[in-house]
Design a protein around this nucleic acid. Structure first.
Lengths: 236, 236
DNA sequence: AAAAGCCACTATGTCGACAATCAGTTTGAC
DNA sequence: GTCAAACTGATTGTCGACATAGTGGCTTTT
């Protein structure tokens, strides 16, 4: 299990993420992982003294971490009443994907305008590389997950819009992962996703922002509909 | 000067904002106002001991407030090196308005789907009301500002998308205001904005999300271009 | 004189304890 | 028996002090 996150973490740490220098940073990463994995169950109450004891530090850095957890929508705090881990719901997931559709569409439009030729070439090489790796180890969707994250990540960075980058890579990233992990959304759509990714980067290479926008929205919309149909019979 | 913010605050406090119950909440509001007004200059360093003394409280609630200020992009923190008020730039403002265009466009599309007939009627009445008030006190753009905020605010709430609402009303609201106040963007576009608002709410009333989206993006895009041309000769 | 290294000082990160607030329970009155 | 009010327990908010990392100035060396 653990090597999944090793891969993803390596992917993410380079560009926007600074390594955890302070104790609050370290505990933040640990709690993020625990919540995303479901080790701290969704909807459960957060006890500051308990977590402080569990991670062996004072409440001060812990509260700092909680503030940042609230920022990425992993917990909800009520003054004088404590914090709870967010409850997952189909409605929430749909709201989230609606946002992603629009935002990553915008990222594509801006990326078509601002990415350098070299950056585009690198992404294309990345896709070919992921394709071959996935061919070799068919069925193991970890690589698809990491590759998918990496692809979207590079497009977002290519937009060169700091607000958009911060939003998608810092604030929305973890809760998207939480939904994917806890609702088991690693699933199929493997080969189709590759083709869609290729079409998107090609549109960007042609500097056709309009088309890249459309393709990305359709790409994420397909994921969303895939999930929606998956949960039509169930409650949750 | 101060009564401007009284109006806006009254507008904002009802739906999503809880009144400041804790000391950190109170000082947060004060510092937000100070930064937005430029009383604490853009780009200046934040000294925790100094602010703690100035507002007469400990560093603990102050740091809580700083964490939330970072969340609304009003300050930037570097570990072990302190916090600075954000530096305004034309590039930053353009990035911000690009985001707003897309996000509020999405809000319109969702609002056309989710707003109740009553909510729509209320917004229409609000527009007529603001129009008459503005007619009476021509030239005083405060009312236009408050009315503009109120209009956009209601559309955003009408989207019923919690992530989108939180984003636009909590995270991006203050920095948008900071740009408007410090770069003096109360400006003209008064009567045109009214017409555009009316067209948008009419599209929503007709449940034409596509059109409402387009009109809103054009509406904000006009503001952005208005600002861009205003700063083509200057540095900043 | 300029650059590099050292040192003192300040600011940030962290800690433990106190105060205020809220939830659940028990007690009391009608 | 039921509702209300006070009490108890624990949790959160706040405080002051300590440890540590960064900043600026001074000395020393080339």
């Amino acid at each position: 299990m653990s090597h999944i996150y090793v891969i993803v973490d390596n992917v993410m740490q380079s560009p926007t993420w600074k390594d955890p220098v302070t104790a609050a940073d370290r505990v933040l990463l640990e709690i993020q992982r625990a919540i995303v994995e479901g080790q701290i169950p969704a909807g459960s109450k957060i006890s500051e003294p308990e977590l402080a004891k569990r991670f062996d530090l004072s409440r001060a850095p812990l509260r700092e971490a909680l503030a940042r957890l609230e920022r990425c929508h992993l917990i909800e705090r009520i003054p004088n009443a404590g914090a709870r881990v967010v409850k997952l719901s189909v409605a929430g997931l749909i709201s989230l994907y609606q946002l992603r559709e629009t935002l990553e569409g915008l990222a594509c439009r801006l990326a078509a305008e601002h990415m350098t030729d070299q950056e585009i070439t690198e992404v294309q090489q990345l896709l070919d590389q992921h394709l071959s790796t996935q061919r070799v180890r068919e069925g193991e969707s970890y690589y698809q997950e990491a590759g998918d994250v990496d692809f979207h990540y590079r497009i977002i960075l290519g937009s060169k819009n700091p607000y958009l980058i911060n939003l998608l890579c810092d604030e929305l990233y973890f809760i998207v992962r939480m939904y994917r992990v806890q609702l088991g959304m690693n699933g199929p759509r493997v080969s189709r996703a590759f083709d869609e990714h290729k079409a998107i980067i090609n549109a960007i290479a042609n500097r056709d922002g309009e088309l890249a926008d459309l393709l990305m929205r359709r790409h994420i919309g397909a994921s969303r509909r895939n999930i929606e149909s998956h949960f039509q019979a169930q409650g949750n």
